[in-house]
């Protein structure tokens, strides 16, 4: 549900940059973590609604989901944690500590 707030903040950030560049934005790349995640379909829908009638109207969103990383407590190596039962791919231990999740970031804007 809070995708609406995210869409509005995203629109503001893209609009601001477009004004600075005096160029028309056509695509934007964003990334999010595992716990700071978004629903792609809802975010695209909310963004389309928010951007209607603005210079960002036809901006295509590319959304990258970054898996959270864990650090093995035995061998100290880092790896992607896709599920809580994940085991260390290096030593097989199930004892890991989650590392900080990736935030929601506007990575890149593509202009016409």
């Amino acid at each position: 549900m809070h995708e609406t707030v995210i869409a509005e903040s995203l629109l503001a950030a893209i609009s601001q940059e477009a004004a600075k560049q005096s160029a028309k934005p056509i695509a934007a790349k964003i990334s999010c973590g595992t716990f700071n995640t978004v629903n792609d379909e809802i975010l695209r829908f909310a963004f389309t609604a928010a951007a209607k009638g603005t210079p960002c109207e036809n901006v295509k969103l590319q959304i990258e989901h970054k898996p959270i990383q864990g650090q093995c407590q035995k061998c100290k190596q880092n790896f992607d944690v896709e599920s809580p039962d994940k085991r260390c791919p290096h030593c097989g231990s199930g004892d890991f500590q989650l590392l900080p999740d990736a935030p929601l970031v506007l990575e890149e804007i593509e202009f016409e």
Binding site: S9, A13, E17, L104, V105, L106, E107, I109, E110
Partner: peptide, 15 residues
Amino acid sequence: MQKKKIGKKILSANE
């Protein structure tokens, strides 16, 4: 066509 790196947190106003 040109790309520009931004690297800005989307919820930075709240933060």
